[in-house]
Amino acid sequence: MRASAAVATALTGDGRTIIRRLASAPPLTLRQTGPRAVHLISTAAGPLGGDRLALDVDVAPYTTLELGSVAGTLVLPGDGASEMLVTARVGAGATLRFAPEPTVLAAGCDHRLLVRLTLEADADVFWREEIVFGRHGESPGRCHARFDATCDGLPLLRQEFTIGDPALDASPAVYGTARCVGTTFLTARTDKPTVSDGVAVLPLAGPGTLVSALAADAVELRSRLEWGEQTALTPAPTSPR
């Protein structure tokens, strides 16, 4: 299956955000859930092997968009590799919060998850990604995730994760005993790195911060990421729950 969905905002004459474009294509169905909020609703299983899905996000200058999903994504095997490509442009002074539910890699899947994030000056972005290595007690299929963020044409963050080679997954340098990996990219700057159990708040060389976490399950992962996000967004660090 090939499908592309898109969402775009525009600024009204009186300075409000409107959702200018909302294009769905099953299984990627988008629903407006608030004046500036859109949710992804899965209207078919998958992605399945062979699926090529694309989501295009365009946040116009000085507008705000919140993008979430109503449920996690379960990546299933099928005929060949599956791909999810998310392309997002965030204009000058615009705000984007992208926080979908986790991607779960079912046994036998072969998935590519590509994110291309293009920011203009003073864009305010919160971008969370969570990957769960299989359902409960299940060994994950394969996944290659790549995240590229640029700001004003300069590279800000480039990361690749590969999941599904048992020897590398269990390496104490890569995921160790963890069963989930998650990151939150924020354009908010932090002064110094902070580290706690399974989570680090990493000030990037450019304008931004990465919260990086490993965890045994999705609940622990979310709690660690949220602690890191809070630490990054508030000056005084707190302790993880």
Partner: peptide, 18 residues
């Protein structure tokens, strides 16, 4: 250069900061 490999090791990042 933008397409060059960018392999990340989350545990190494945690270890480095610790």
């Amino acid at each position: 250069w933008e397409a060059l490999p960018a392999g990340s090791a989350p545990a190494l990042d945690l270890i480095a900061e610790q």
